[in-house]
Every structure is written in C-alpha cells, then in structure tokens.
C-alpha cells in the first residue's frame, strides 16, 4: 500500500499529515515514511531517530568528447529539453536543463557524449521508533528535483518489503516533481485548507489526479479558519470523499512550531487521524473510498 500526501498549495499540512499519520499507523503496522519534497524536506524536523544509512545521490550528465565528434548534430535534434546546443564547431551542454534521459548519449553515432556522474544530493535513512524514515535533500544549486525523487523511490523499493505501508510526503504544486512523487502511489490524500488559495489549488491538484487516473480523497486542515462550504460543494459535486477535517487550533501551531507530533496530544486531532488511518486501511483492503 502506497499513499502519497499532496496538496497543490504549499503550507496546507502535507508534512503534518504525513508524519502524524505515519506515527499513528506505526502503532500497529510497519510503516516507511519517505520525504519526497527534496527541495525542502521537513518531515525530519518532527522525527528524531538513529541514522541507519547515508548515501550520496548522483545523476548522469553528458560530457562532450571533442576529439571523436563529427558534428553531425544528432544530439541536439534528440534532446527534448534543449540541454545540448550545437554552435558551429562546438557542442554545448547545459547540465541544469538536462533530464538525464541518455537520448543524446545513446544515439550519438560516435559515442562522443559519455554520461558523467554528478552529485545532486543526499539520502538519509533513519529509524524512528517503529517508522522507517527516508528523506532526500537536493543540493543547493541543483534545478532538477525529479531525478532525485525517482532515485529515492527506487531506494525505498529496493530496501523495504511490500508488506509495509509506504507514505510519500510529496512536494507542493502540480508540476513534474509532484507527478513523479505520486505516480506510483495506490492512493493520494490531497490536503487543503478552507481559504481561497487552498480551494483554488485544490482544484488544480484534483485535475492533476484525474489526469493521472489516481484514486484520491481530501483532508481539510485548519478547519474553521474560513468557510469550507465551497470545498464541500465542490467535493460533493465531483464525488470526491472528504476523509477528515483537522481543526484550526493555537495548540496545534504551538506543538508544531516546537517540532512535536500532534496526533497523540489532542483528542479531536487523534480522532481525525484515526479517521484518516481507517480510511487508508479500508482502501488498502480493496474497499471503496
């Protein structure tokens, strides 16, 4: 069972939901929590445990071998990202535009674009009580989050069994990084908040999930901060389940800002998280959302 926590709008509570749901589930299940918001992973702020493994993560970028190149121009024709430009007698590579797809390298008739590895970030695997926690962090200056997200998912695939519940804390937005983080998930939880921005971006996130043909449900966080009628009507009209609501409370903000979990400290919050847990487990058993 793989669950991605996504949102559209940033700051609606993806991480809050991810870490607290993981902790609650870990009371009775094996859980792997993976922070895929590699540009600013922050699940780790709430989870303190022992480092089990640290890995440097690399991507591969072509490097031009001038001596064997015949300047046929195939490489720049094959690159969908304009990361390779032929300029007269020269080939220029733009590493920040490169998506490491290997097309230029493998289709070069004279093998003049060997792929050279380049550091892009770091992965850490921590054991936090019963939770296996994996997070990756993109290096400053790296522009492509997708390769690191893909490799982090690959690491989880390799190191953990399928009996564990996997939770992916996805990046915000609706662009490539979110797609990469959620495309392999069985179910997506979209976290929103009852504000105009929250609602607007929820709709974008829903469109994205429909496009990907994913099963998904909605959690309304900061419930009470604004009118949630629009969100409820929208979900009803589009047959999207609202799994639970998490109240807007000063006490939650206080705990959060101290790096603490909230599911085990406030009764109504625990009730909300239990609803989410039960929903997720029901789906895992093949039940209806």
């Amino acid at each position: 069972m793989k669950i991605a926590i996504a949102s559209g709008k940033g700051g609606t509570g993806k991480t809050t939901l991810s870490v607290n749901l993981a902790a609650l589930l870990s009371e009775n299940h094996k859980v792997v929590l993976t922070d895929l918001d590699v540009e600013e992973p922050n699940s780790g702020l709430f989870l303190h445990g022992n480092l089990v493994q640290k890995e440097i993560m690399y991507k591969h970028i072509p490097e031009w071998e001038e001596s064997t190149c015949t300047l046929c121009g195939e490489c720049q024709k094959n690159c969908n990202f304009h990361a390779i430009i032929q300029l007269g007698q020269q080939i220029m590579v733009f590493p920040e535009l490169c998506h490491s797809c290997y097309a230029c390298s493998e289709l070069c008739p004279t093998f003049s674009l060997p792929m050279i590895r380049q550091r892009m970030g770091e992965l850490k695997y921590r054991k936090v009580k019963e939770i296996d926690f994996v997070e990756s962090h993109l290096d400053i200056g790296q522009e492509q989050a997708v390769p690191l997200i893909a490799q982090t998912l690959g690491y989880v695939e390799e190191h953990f069994g399928h009996d564990e519940i996997r939770i992916y804390d996805a990046p915000p937005g609706t662009s490539c990084p979110v797609i990469e983080a959620s495309k392999g998930a069985d179910y997506i939880i979209l976290v929103t908040e009852p504000t105009p921005f929250g609602f607007h971006d929820l709709k974008l996130a829903v469109e994205t999930m429909l496009e990907m043909q994913k099963k998904f449900g909605v959690v309304i966080n900061r419930h009470g901060i604004g009118d949630d009628k629009e969100i409820r009507d929208y979900c009803k009209n589009n047959k999207i389940p609202i799994i639970a609501t998490i109240p807007n409370k000063r006490e939650i903000a206080r705990l959060y800002s101290g790096g603490e979990l909230i599911y085990d400290k406030l009764e109504d919050v625990r009730a909300a998280f239990e609803k989410i847990r039960d929903h997720v487990l029901r789906i895992g058993k093949g039940g209806r959302s």
Binding site: H82, A83, G88
Partner: peptide, 12 residues
C-alpha cells in the same frame, strides 16, 4: 524548458 539556448542557437 530551454527556450533561451534554443533561441540563442537560432540567432547563431
């Protein structure tokens, strides 16, 4: 992606 270098190449 890469509109800048692509256009620059056309100009070249």
């Amino acid at each position: 992606h890469g509109a800048g270098p692509k256009t620059a190449q056309k100009i070249f």
